[in-house]
Amino acid sequence: MSDSTALIFGFNNYSEEILKNVQQKYDNVKIYSLDKEDVKRDSSIGHFDLSDNWKKMEDEINVDKSVAFCVLEETAENVFLVISLRATYENLSIIAIASDKENADKLLMAGANKVVPLVETTADIITNMLENPISNDLLHEMLYEESTLKIAQIKIGRESHIKGVELSSIDWGHYDGIIVLSVMHKDMKSEFIYSSKVKRHIIKEDDVLVVVGYEQDIQEFEEKIGSNRYVSWNNWSW
């Protein structure tokens, strides 16, 4: 019951790609389809109905450690699925795809933690590929964990010596090989460190610093400030 599970709702090209990319991250991956024919063709696929009582699923998965990917092609069905899951599981992390901004807003209202608007996201990526090819590749490799250069989320611990210090008073140049990009507090959206809004921000326990550097430098940084990596993403919603 302590295993992490990825639940993929929808059996299509999107679910195939998601499966490829997330199966190493989760202990279990389950695909559900609305179409009984899919289930007949592939026994590993589960069947679901929009009128299902989702409570049954609670016995099979650890809801707090699981993520649901809602990738149904029919937008209205996708919205209904998200709202059904949210109504049943308050803590389940739900990621959904939307064809456009209008549907993305509906999915967010239905309770999805994160919505990826297809057209907008693809357009953003194409624009970056054309206009900023170097940074685009670099940032992608960092996030996709294909580069030796890492991006890390450092959670300020109870013992950290920068806890209670004003952000603007810290000389980040003191920490070699590290660039601090942003800070994120539970109560506020992620803010870049250059923003005037966060300059007077007092660093508190559980704040998250997003830093870029090589593995060894990040480790040294963690030791120096007395904090650790890893943030359970379920705590955050955008």
């Binding site: 990319n21 795809i97 990826v116 693809t122 991006i151």
Partner: peptide, 27 residues
């Protein structure tokens, strides 16, 4: 686009805060 969604999902579930930061930088 389907492949992009897969990649984004991996990036997102791996490091959500960092993903948002990078997404913001690129936006």
């Amino acid at each position: 686009p389907q492949e992009l969604i897969g990649i984004i999902t991996k990036e997102l579930v791996g490091q959500p805060v960092a993903f948002e930061v990078i997404h913001e930088l690129r936006s």
